[in-house]
């Protein structure tokens, strides 16, 4: 049991961070505004969770200009993908065990 819980990732402890990773797992990349729309959170809230995921290097950030508008897009790093998959597997196992 304890070995499974060890795989439950603290970085995904929060609804928003888990949401960000879920979206980035199935989308090559996604910009800030669309993420905000999908997760239904405020700018500041999303930004702080993004920072947290960035600091553990689970996501990478690309800043570029589309015309004159700055555009920030995010995608999941290889490390982030692995961590998320482990987290998912651990969740599934925990549910199986308890049931």
């Amino acid at each position: 049991m304890s070995s499974i819980i060890a795989h439950i990732n603290k970085a995904f402890d929060h609804r928003v961070r888990l949401g960000i990773m879920s979206i980035l797992m199935v989308n090559e990349q996604m910009d800030f505004n669309r993420l905000k729309e999908l997760l239904d959170v405020t700018d500041g809230n999303l930004a702080s969770h993004m920072k947290a995921l960035e600091s553990v290097e689970y996501i990478t950030v690309t800043k570029q200009f589309i015309g004159k508008k700055p555009n920030t897009s995010y995608h999941a790093s290889e490390l982030g993908r692995q961590a998320f998959q482990q987290h998912l597997a651990a969740l599934e196992q925990l549910i199986k065990k308890i049931n």
Partner: peptide, 14 residues
Amino acid sequence: NQLNDIQHLMNRST
């Protein structure tokens, strides 16, 4: 709930 959230967001974003 976490698993449901994950599935829901993956669907809705794609």
